[in-house]
Design a protein around this nucleic acid. Sequence first.
DNA 1: TAATGGGTGCACT
DNA 2: AAGTGCACCCATT
Lengths: 454, 454
Amino acid sequence: MVKKPRSIWSPDHLTDALHREQNKLIHLDPVPIFKKRGDIKPWLQKIFFPQVIDLVIERSDSGKVIFKCKSNIRHEYKKRNSKDKEENKDNEPKFCCPFRIRATFSLKLQKWNIVVVNNVHSHELEFNPTSDEYKKFKKLLVANNDLETIKNFEELEYKTKLKLPILPQVMTCDCGLTNEINWFDVVLPEPRISTCKTTKRINKKKKSQQSQSHLSRNNVIPMVSDSLSSFFKETQEQINTTIQNVKQEEQFALPQTPMVNLDEIDFTDMFKTPKNNSSSINNSTSLKFVKKDKESPKHFLQHSSSTSSLSSTTLLETQPAMDIAEDSLSYNNLASPLHLTEEMSTDLLMMKTTAIINIHTPSMTQMDMNMDAMTTTESVGQVCEDPEEEESAVFKESAWIGLCPGLKLQQESDNEINETTLQPISEDRVTDDADNKEQLNSYLDFLNIANCSI
Amino acid sequence: MVKKPRSIWSPDHLTDALHREQNKLIHLDPVPIFKKRGDIKPWLQKIFFPQVIDLVIERSDSGKVIFKCKSNIRHEYKKRNSKDKEENKDNEPKFCCPFRIRATFSLKLQKWNIVVVNNVHSHELEFNPTSDEYKKFKKLLVANNDLETIKNFEELEYKTKLKLPILPQVMTCDCGLTNEINWFDVVLPEPRISTCKTTKRINKKKKSQQSQSHLSRNNVIPMVSDSLSSFFKETQEQINTTIQNVKQEEQFALPQTPMVNLDEIDFTDMFKTPKNNSSSINNSTSLKFVKKDKESPKHFLQHSSSTSSLSSTTLLETQPAMDIAEDSLSYNNLASPLHLTEEMSTDLLMMKTTAIINIHTPSMTQMDMNMDAMTTTESVGQVCEDPEEEESAVFKESAWIGLCPGLKLQQESDNEINETTLQPISEDRVTDDADNKEQLNSYLDFLNIANCSI
DNA sequence: TAATGGGTGCACT
DNA sequence: AAGTGCACCCATT
Ligand SMILES: [Zn+2]
Ligand SMILES: [Zn+2]
C-alpha cells in the first residue's frame, strides 16, 4: 500500500495548490477556527467557488465533513445530448467525480483539519452562478453582511457574464517577487481534468483536424513548456523535501536548494525517440542542474502561479509510448534528452521566470488516474467479468471505480486514440519540422502516460 | 412494454396477498385515511413487521412515499463471514432487494393509494426485534398508547425468542369458513425469495446431500401440493376477473364462479414428461373444473391462507425443463397432466380445503426474476460487456438490475445447478418411485422456470 | 396535490 | 471518500 504524498498549502494560494498537486493530498493550513461544523462549508465555498468548484457535502458527522463536487450530470448530459432520450437514458453516466475535501476535527489540536483528498475531476469545471449551492451561499453572505466577499463574487459573476478570465488572477504576496508573475490571458477556466465518460474514441486520422479546431479557442501556453517541465521532477522533489524541513526547522531560513537555470540546460539531442524498454526509464536525465542560491524555495513554490495548468490532450497514437505505459506506469524521469527548437526556447523566455514549470497532462483518462490511485489501496476485486473465466481481464477495483457503476476500462486499439474533452493546446506552435514533431509526439505520449506532475 | 398484472387485496389478508401475488402489483384496499404522509409508515409497519418485512423510506415527497426493505447487508454479511474482513470488503454486495411499496396521493380521490410493487426479495426474511426501525416503531406505539398493537407485537417477540411459528396464524373472517383453515406447523418464517448474491453454485452431485440436510429443518407441505396447484391457474384467473367485476358491480353478490373440486380432478397420466417444444405449453390442462355455487369468490380468495408459501429449491438439473425455460418463459398452464401418487392425494386431503393451491417456486434466482420483471420496462442497455464485442452477451437492464452494480447473470452449465439459500422441501415425501420422481422433477423444473404464481 | 419515475444532498447510525 | 434513510428536487408524459 503506497501512501499518497502530502503537501501543505495556505488557502491563500489555493489556485496554485490545485494546479500543482494533482497527485498529492493538499493540506490547507492555516484555516480559521470553526465553531460549528456548519461553518466549514461556507468558508470552503468562499475559496472554492472562485476555483470554479461547486462543493456539496457528501457525508458529515460530528467529527468529519466530506465535501465533493456538486453533481451536474443532468445538465451536462442534457446540454450535450438533447434528443434520443430513450436510447441515452441507459448510457447516462453516474456522476463519479473523485474530487473530495475532507474536514476532520482533531481532538488533540481541538481544530478542524482540511485536506483536499483527490485533486482531479471527472468533468469540466465551470462557474455556474445559477446553481442552487451558489444561491444559498450568496444568501448566507448577505445574512452575514460579508460585504467584501459579496463584492468579490459580484465581480466574479460579472466576469463570467462577459466571458472575462476568472481564474487568471495575480497571486499577491508580501515577498516582493510576485509582480512579474501573472497569468497568461486564458479566457476560460481550464478543466484540470479528463473524464471517464466523456472520453471519446475517435479515428486517428481526425487528430490534426481536432487539434486545429481546438486551437482557435484559447490562447494558451504552448505545449512545449509543459513538455520541458517534465525534466524538473527530481529537482522539485528535492525542493519539496527541503520545504518540509524548512517548515519544521526554521520558517524563514533560505536553504541551499538546487534550482534550474534554463540557460544551462543541455539541449543536445533532445528529441531522440525514447527507448522502448522500461528498464531505461529509470535512468537519470541528461539535464544539468545548477544551484541557484538566495532564493527561498518556499517563495518559489508559492509563486508558481505563472505556470500554465492547461492540460494537453491525450495522444496515445504512437506504439512505443504505449508500450512504455503498459510496462511501467511511473513518475520517473525521462530516459532520453529533449530537443528544443528555437521557438520553444522563445516560449520559455516568454515565461520570464525561473520557476519550475508545472505539467498537467491528464494523460491517462480520469479512470486511468483512478486506477493509478487505486493501487494505493488494498482492495482487489473483479468488475464486470464473468467469474467463470479466470484468464479474462481482471483489474483492481477501488471505491472510486465503484462510483461509476457499469464503467469499464477501454483497451487501446491500434487505429484509435483517446481524445478527452480537454482543449488540446497548439501543437503546431512547437515546430514545423515533421521529424522533430514526430519525435516530440513520442515524448509527449510518454509524458502523458507517465502523468508527470513536477 | 408489458404491464404488470394488478391484484387488489385487503390489508387484513396481507399474508395471503404476499404469498400469492409474487408477480403482480398488490393494491391494498381499503386503507385508512392518512392525515399526514408521516402516518403512512407506522401503519405499514404495523402490518408488515408481522410479515417479517422491515420497511424504510427510500424516497418521499408531498405526493408519494416509496418504501423498501431496510438494508441489513452488513449484518447478514458479517453473520455469514465474520473473518477475512479485508478480503471480504470488496466482495460485499450492495443491498439490492427489489421489493417496494409505493404510496401515492391521489388528488382525484383525495386519499393515499398503496401498492406493493415488486413482491420478491433478494434476502432472507427474519423478524429482528433489535432493528432500529422496530425500536422506533415501538416507541411510536407507546406514544400513541396503542395497547392492542403493543400486545400483539410483544407476542410476536415472544414467539420469535422461543422459535415458535410467527407467520402461521389463523386468518379469521366472519364468513364461517375459516376455522378449518390453518397453517401447517412451520417453525420459522420461510423466505419467499432466492437471492442474487447468496445464490451459490454447487456441484450437481451434492444435490441429494443438500436435500437431505435441509429435510430435517422444517415440516412443510410436500412439494407435490405446490406442483398440483399449478393446474389451477386458469381457474384463478377467471376468479380474479370475476372478482374485479364483482367489486365494480355488486360487492356482496354471489356470482357463478368456476371452483375446483379436488375430488373431480382427472389424475390420469399426470406424471408424463412434458414435451420439449414450447408450442405445447399453451395447451389447456386436462383438469376438469366443476363449478361450485353458493361460494363467494371473494371469500374463497381470502381464505387461501391455508396454502403453504414454502418455496422449493431451484432444481434446474434436467435438460428438457431448461430448454423450455429458455425457449419460453411464460406463466401459462402446463401442457401435460400431472400424475398423483397416493401419498400426494393424502397430502391434498390433509389440506382439508378446496382453496386454490398456491405455488411459490422461486425457481429462477432473484436476478432471473428481476430480469423477467425487467421486460416490462423499455430500458435496454449493456452491462459489464465490452462495447467492442457485439456478439457477446447483451441483456436487458432494468432499474432493479441497477440496484446490484457489478452483478452479472450466471449462465447454467451442464454439471452445475443453482442452489438458492432457500430451504428445499422434502422431496422424498413425494414418492419412492424413481421414475415418477424423475418425471415429477421435470415438472417441478418447469414449474420453477415458469415461476407460476397461481 | 395531474401521475409517475428518478437524482442527490447530507446527517444519522 | 463509512452506508443509507429520507426529503427536496427535477424529469417526462
Ligand atoms: Zn469534480
Ligand atoms: Zn426485501
